[in-house]
Design a protein around this nucleic acid. Sequence first.
DNA 1: GCATTAACCACAG
DNA 2: CTGTGGTTAATGC
Length: 226
Amino acid sequence: MDIHDCSNCINKSTAAKELDEDVLKVMSKNKVEVSFKKGDIIFKQDSYSTNIVYLKAGLVKIHMQGPCREKILRIVKAPSYLGIPTTIGDKINHYSATALENTKVCFIDVNEFKKLIYGNGKFAYEIIMELCRNELIDDLRCVNQAQKQIPGRVAESLLNFSRQIYNSNKFILPLSRSELGDMVGTSRESICRILIDFSNEKIIDIKAKEVSILNIEKLEQICKKG
DNA sequence: GCATTAACCACAG
DNA sequence: CTGTGGTTAATGC
């Protein structure tokens, strides 16, 4: 048994589950599996992109250097593809991906990936599904960020961590205050103040990076009314 | 005007 | 890296 054989992979993507055994065997030869530690850069903005990245395990931030500061576009939890748009859509990466915890990734040659798309309708369909879902999520986030005040945006990202990433009211923030600022488009200082405000109002309990949501109704209310 | 929001700066653990 | 205080600019009542 070969552990590098994609057909035996226990972390197969929904799309890859649609592929036949023999196709997966070919894929095994055209991919490389790599482990990253917390803080490692998986791929970098402005570098040449020749691989599709499949996030098998771990947590990653997708971020872009803007005109004046850094912006975290989103946090991605395994299993998921990373950077299909930036690899297929252009030769150069439009954003970077950095591991937030220990992470396992497969690099798949982009030409090989294209062959899979051409030859496997159901696989291609699942990829399109994932891209569509992501676009809808991005649209929503874009509108919310543009129209909410900062406490609303902070509340929203706390709820996202709780629901989308950790499925728990208690979690450890994978980001520093400064990164949180980069995520909601504000300063590190504002994040500090808002987290302390939330804590004083007994909406959350926060010790360093340990967060527990105490009053989810109130947090939702702040998230909603902006 | 006055209050609120939030950015920027500086300094201290 | 975090927390705090002072200052300042923009916006709303």
